[in-house]
Write a protein that binds this DNA or RNA. Structure first.
Lengths: 144, 144
DNA sequence: AATACAATTGTAATTGGTCCAAAAATAAAA
DNA sequence: TTTTATTTTTGGACCAATTACAATTGTATT
């Protein structure tokens, strides 16, 4: 899902999702904003345009999207559940200062994990925490 | 923290934690049970022995332990926050059938992550989801 | 012992999310 | 097309996990 300009309706159908108006709008939101939103962010933004939109619908839709594997859940903090419409193998970086989450291109092919032989692995998740460049420079300024 | 038989009291002190009775007992629980418990599991178990124990104390203590970096938080699911007293670099595998979480020994040294140059990385987390051997065999039985 | 400080406790409040039943929309059948 | 069945959406009630907070208890300091 690179969101360059795909037909969302067709894309949903391809993945066995009936493309209702709400579902289309929600998915469009996800590919337009790569900010890894949580349910509330999606709701707040879209409900301006769709005044009758219900939070429950957003929850239901995200659950459905996950089942159909067109979005993945990002659980870096225990307090916030975010979502990502990109399904290719990639990691995330969370800046603990500004709170932003960045996509991180990562090649896990060289990873040696002997212990995994006893498991059937369906999903792999990798994330980092730290301080992003913007925040790091901002911090330095104070002490110069 | 391999828990083989260290002096918990000394260990806490070394990490700048005043070793109160509750803190000692909670940390002992963590290294004895490698089941990656959540707050409630710790509370239920220990409150049998320490009847006055409060859930808030467990929450406070886990927060303190995390700040002092002697436990790490495991956030694989949005619904459960678990903890691990092992601080060496390792990953986790969660079985989506039985719900158990296993430690996974992993070598990330070969990992190529160009995008991380723009960040100061403090923590790295890796986890997998899938089906463990026990559950996999159990499942097969049904269809034979 | 008196005082100060830190840790613990328990209740209340908050939050993020689910449940559920009614209403609305869509699809299928007549 | 109307009627009927099915799916989706909605919103309010509900629930469980976590935090806030003020009172109490415990510990260290003089």
């Amino acid at each position: 899902m690179d969101g360059s300009k795909i037909n969302v309706e067709a894309y949903l159908k391809e993945h066995g999702i009936k493309p209702s108006y709400q579902r289309i709008r929600i998915f469009e939101y996800l590919i337009k904003h790569q900010n890894h939103p949580n349910v509330d962010a999606i709701y707040r933004e879209l409900s301006q345009d769709i005044p009758t939109l219900s939070r429950t619908t957003v929850y239901n839709t995200m659950k459905l999207f996950m089942e159909k594997k067109i979005v993945q859940m990002i659980t870096i903090e225990d307090t916030e559940t975010r979502f990502d419409a990109a399904m290719d193998a990639h990691g995330h970086f969370k800046c603990t200062v500004c709170g932003r989450i960045f996509d991180v291109h990562v090649d896990l092919s060289g990873m040696k994990v002997d212990d995994l032989n006893e498991f059937r692995v369906d999903e792999t998740h990798l994330y980092f925490k730290g301080v992003c460049d913007d925040c790091f420079e901002e911090k330095n300024k104070e002490y110069n």
